[in-house]
Nucleic acid binder design. Structure first.
Length: 198
DNA sequence: AGTAGGATTAGCT
DNA sequence: GCTAATCCTACTC
């Protein structure tokens, strides 16, 4: 697949299969992030060591660490230098469900990959997978495109957990999910935390 | 060198 | 509904 606008790619990723280390899932929820023009994007303030992969070639995995304990992953989809990416937020496990249960320490199958950090745990993805080429047969993680989802089965809305102007659902309704799919994560607006008293 | 805050989750009320 | 957990990243001197 060639590079495309991150919103186009986000819609196209719904229903695609992500294969990783004995577990396969069908993507049900994503969020588009543009480059330096998008205040919600990690690339908004330009290239840094963390977001370097976003500026590279499409089809690679951008992994980042957040909240002191979680890893999330993106599909890079822009031409080199543009830094477009799609956050993979949720999926339905379709193969290797026993292994996914072990990794997630739960038998609630709907929750195995319901949320971006849960999804990376289910697939065995960690920060060291940053930069992986998802279209190289030799990679431990791969993306298999499926037929595009019909537009009427795709819903959109504000991005989850994005604070500041980038979280404005009027300007950036760039979260996309499959209508009525039980593995789509619940919406939660960004809420700034108070600093611990000390 | 210090510090504020985060593309979240699990657990409790 | 609310909040602690926990450390990396980037911003500000």
């Amino acid at each position: 697949m060639t590079a495309a606008d991150s919103r186009t790619t986000a819609r196209r990723l719904l229903g695609a299969h992500l294969l990783g280390r004995g577990v396969s899932l069908r993507i049900t929820e994503v969020e588009a992030y543009a480059g330096e023009a998008d205040p919600g994007s990690h690339a908004f303030r330009g290239k840094t060591p963390r977001n370097e992969v976003m500026f590279g070639p499409p089809g690679h995995l951008y992994c980042y660490f957040t909240y002191g304990m979680h890893t999330c992953c993106n599909y890079v989809c822009s031409e080199p230098g543009e830094a477009g990416a799609v956050l993979i937020r949720a999926g339905e496990v379709i193969d290797g469900i026993e292994l996914a249960r072990e990794r997630r320490h739960t038998d609630k199958d709907r929750e195995l990959a319901r949320g971006p950090a849960r999804l990376t745990v289910a697939l065995g993805i960690s920060l060291s997978d940053n930069g992986t080429d998802l279209h190289d047969d030799a990679s431990p993680l791969r993306l298999d495109w499926q037929d595009p989802f019909p537009a009427e089965r795709i819903l959109s809305g504000p991005r989850v957990g994005v604070s500041g102007p980038g979280g404005d659902g009027e300007r950036f309704p760039w979260r996309f999910w499959i209508d009525a799919d039980p593995t789509v994560s619940p919406y939660r607006p960004a809420k700034p935390r108070r600093r611990r008293a000390g």
